[in-house]
Each structure stands twice: as structure tokens, then as C-alpha cells.
Design a binder for these strands. Structure first.
Lengths: 200, 200
DNA sequence: ATTATTATGGAACGTTTGTTCCAGAATAGC
DNA sequence: GCTATTCTGGAACAAACGTTCCATAATAAT
């Protein structure tokens, strides 16, 4: 008996996600969202309550779909540094598809724009960073074992966090340059560094 | 004969710089600037023409004073990796003084927020990144020589760029965490990695 | 003191912002 | 075909935005 929706809630979130990802929270107006999603203002407010709630729904969607798939590359077939290489390829592939300067990482963008002033955003981001760090740690431990590394647990943990932070830097950098090869070059150098460091 | 200024143009830029640095371009209203600088709206428009022009003046000020001093740490007394360590300390010291979550790096913030959509910002940033890369390269070459590294010029160049990107990641990260020790930990790990990589 | 000159800061501008609201459109069951 | 239900999208809103403008204040020169 209800009138059917032209777009489901999930479809709306997915369309809006790209807009927020590219332009940030402040850089996106509700008008932008309306014209990008093809949905009326009423729908946004009846479904989410406001721009900020929609933004957080998009952030969650990003974590649960896009980012989850990226992390999945760290847990699938490849092992050790090869897995980390796959993680890079996943993001670089996106930028190859979307063109440069690219969208970067939605989480990294939000960290820069909102985290200092919005506790809610900061908590969500810190939680995600922890998950990413643990996934990197797993691959790094595999690599350390394979190389008979003498590094202790504490050092491997620090390397995992360093990988998280450096990686966020790369995705930020991807928003500021037109040079796609810089991303490939970073990946190569970073893996070389990791290998050299573990081989001690 | 003219009425003297309550604040010189340079003082205005310096006050405004901190506001833009903390809150970004979109996140800062002209009202914010007025109350932060203690200057009337008229002054902003007669001196700069508008919000965007003032923003770029602040970006330039940041590069010429704050960032120039940071790069100076790479060229002064310390050599090789010690110089890079000093560069880290310079920024970490700022965050120690200002409190966490910190302001990060004005350039890195602008790269994330404006670079994809504003060519003018992108060019200014790319130019600065090049300068920073060359400065890192100088220190890295010193370190390579000291360690009798077998790395070729191409690899050292890639390491310098990686250092730029990773570092930007750290300053972004500083906006999203309350944990100051994470910055110190990153510095330590990163220098360890650089040393291990060069010693090959 | 008077005048000439220039910065000042608040009033007022038209837009654009995020949000609210509701008449009407669109379907499912009868 | 009619009714009940609920989603739709544009009209309308106050607030905030960036910007313009000008009477006023404040000095330096006369």
C-alpha cells in the first residue's frame, strides 16, 4: 500500500557517498546531494534527519563496503608483503579508474576536515585505524617470519602503525597531484623499505 | 597623513593564518576572521579583495615563515638522518605546544580540501612539495654516503619523495588523534626504516 | 585649529545555506 | 475504480554566508 521508493535508502547513501568523498562535508551542499542523487530534499530529511546524519551514514557505508574490501585484500590469498602490495593496488586501481587528481581515501579526508572539531568523527576514524593497523600487523608478522627477522613484537607493532599513517599520506597526496605514477613509485619504495627493515 | 592601522597587513595575515590552518577554508567564515583578528570586515576587503585572496596570502605566509623555518632545520647544523629527525621535532614541538588533536600541516590540509578542485592551490602545493623533496634528498644523500650505501640516485630520489608523502600522512594523522606519543613513535620507526634501507 | 587623507567597523545587500512543510503523485489492496 | 497509505519534490523559511558601502574616527600636514 505504500508508495514505492524511486531509490532505496542504500542507493541514496551510495550516491551521496561519492559526493562527500570528493568534496568533503563543508564542500557539499544539500543542493549538490539532491542533484547528484536525483532525490528530493524531503527524502533526505525524512530518511536521515539532516545533512550530518547522511554524512555519517555515508562514512559507515564507505567503511563497510569499500574499506572492508580493501582490508579483505590483506587477508586473502596473498601473504606477507604481497598482501600489502595488493592493498596498494586496490586503491591505486581506483585512482586509475577515476582519474587524477583522485578522491583519495574518504576516511583520510574526513580525518583532516572534521576530526579535530567533531568527536563523533574522531572516534569512528580511530576505531577504523585500529582495525587497519591490526590487518597490516598480520601481514607484517608473516613477512617477518618468512625473512627470519629479529624484530620484536613491539617493533612490528610500530611498523604496522607507521604503515597506516604513511598510507593515509599517500591517499592525501593523490588529491593534490596529477601524477599517477607517483602512487606506483611510492608503493614500490615503501615495500622495499619494509623488506629492508624486517631483514635485520 | 593617513590614519594609522590598528593592525598591519602582515599582522592580519598572521592572525588569519592560524584560523585557516585549524579550520580550513570552507570551515572558516569571514565572521570568524573578523573576531579572531580584531579587524573590521572593511579592512579585509580593502586589503585583499576577498576571503579567497586572504587565504592565499595566509598560505604564502605559512610557506615563507613557518615552513621555511622547518626546511631550515634540514639545512643547518645537523647532517643526514639527524637533520630529518630535527625536522620531525620541529613539527612535533608545535603539536606539543598547541595540544592534540593538533593543527597538522597547513599545506597538507589544503591539499586534501582544495587541491582537487582549485588549480591555483594545487600548483602552489606541488611547487612546495618539490622544494621539500629536494631538501630531504640532500639529507638522505648525506646519510647514504655516511653508511656507504649502494643505493643509486634514482632510488634515493624515490626515498626522498616517499619521505615527503609519509610525512604529510603524519601531520594529517595528528589532526585525528589525541595521542602525542604516536608522533614520536612514527618518527623513531621511520628513521629506523630509512637507516635500514640505506644500509644495503 | 583646521583641513586633507585614509583606515575603521557596523549597517545593509543579495545569495546561498540547511531545514521544514505540505499538496499531490504513485502504488497496493479492496 | 476507489481508497488508504506513504513517498515525492518544490515552495517557503530563517539563518548564515561573502560582499559592498559609507558615515565616522583618527592621524599628519598646514
Amino acid at each position: 500500500m505504500p508508495r514505492p521508493r524511486s531509490k532505496t535508502r542504500d542507493e541514496l547513501v551510495q550516491s551521496a557517498m561519492w559526493v562527500f568523498w570528493e568534496n568533503g562535508f563543508e564542500g557539499t551542499s544539500v543542493e549538490d546531494l539532491v542533484s547528484a542523487t536525483g532525490v528530493g530534499r524531503g527524502a533526505i530529511y525524512s530518511d536521515f534527519g539532516g545533512k550530518e546524519e547522511l554524512f555519517f551514514a555515508c562514512l559507515t557505508e564507505y567503511l563497510e563496503t569499500f574499506m572492508a574490501a580493501a582490508i579483505e585484500t590483506l587477508r586473502s590469498d596473498a601473504e606477507g608483503l604481497d598482501a600489502i602490495s595488493d592493498y596498494f593496488d586496490y586503491f591505486i586501481g581506483l585512482h586509475k579508474k577515476r582519474g587524477m587528481p583522485g578522491p583519495g581515501c574518504f576516511i583520510a579526508n574526513t580525518m583532516t576536515e572534521l576530526a579535530p572539531h567533531l568527536v563523533e568523527a574522531r572516534e569512528k576514524i580511530e576505531e577504523h585505524m585500529e582495525m587497519l593497523r591490526r590487518s597490516f600487523l598480520r601481514s607484517i608478522k608473516q613477512a617477518a617470519k618468512k625473512q627470519n627477522s629479529k624484530k620484536g613484537d613491539k617493533e612490528l607493532n610500530e611498523l604496522a602503525r607507521l604503515t597506516v599513517i604513511s598510507t593515509q599520506g599517500l591517499w592525501s597526496y593523490a588529491r593534490g597531484t596529477s601524477d599517477l605514477t607517483a602512487l606506483e613509485s611510492f608503493k614500490r619504495s615503501f615495500l622495499t623499505m619494509l623488506e629492508a627493515t624486517l631483514g635485520r
